[in-house]
Amino acid sequence: MIRATIVSIRVLLVMTVLTGVLYPLTVTVIARLVFPDRAEGSLIREGGAVLGSDAIGQSFSRPEYFWGRLSATSRMPYDASASSGTNYGPLHPDLKKAAEGRIAALKTHPVPDGAIPADLVTASASGLDPHISPAAAEYQVRRVASARGISEEAVREVVRLHSSGRFLGILGEPRVHVLRLNLALDRMKSER
């Protein structure tokens, strides 16, 4: 037992150096050299300021912006220092309440007829989902267009530019990047 313990300590020390120090450092060095932007978090920069990360969503509630998924992070919505889902089961009363709140907020503005896309009234797993479905974007086009005083077609064109499809047509789901889309809409305004 004593000999096994001594060998265990030596093995753990060697493993700590190999898998706990050398391994992550090697990955860091390769990542920095080959994919420097992605390694540091795919940050969106403008001038010296960081405007966000390509991976991380932000909260929007003004009518002129597209809104993302509901977020369950506790300090503030889309708190990227403490990711969290709601963990509500399907019959949790607050799940229904949150959906009703979102529906009411959507309907204070002009919206198309028809049912509301599911991802627009539910919270994402991480609370940081940067995307919405194309249907959820289409549902908000009328509101954004009227709030910005531009045509629905012009808004749809920007949505198209910030949409992506399935990988190889098979993996994942089609989606629209909310932050990129809203940044582009603001840029369009300042260019006009």
Partner: peptide, 19 residues
Amino acid sequence: VDLTHSPGQSGGNMEGKET
């Protein structure tokens, strides 16, 4: 709420799932 799968959305039980 529209829960059906369509080209525009995956629909279904999206609570706690990523788009």
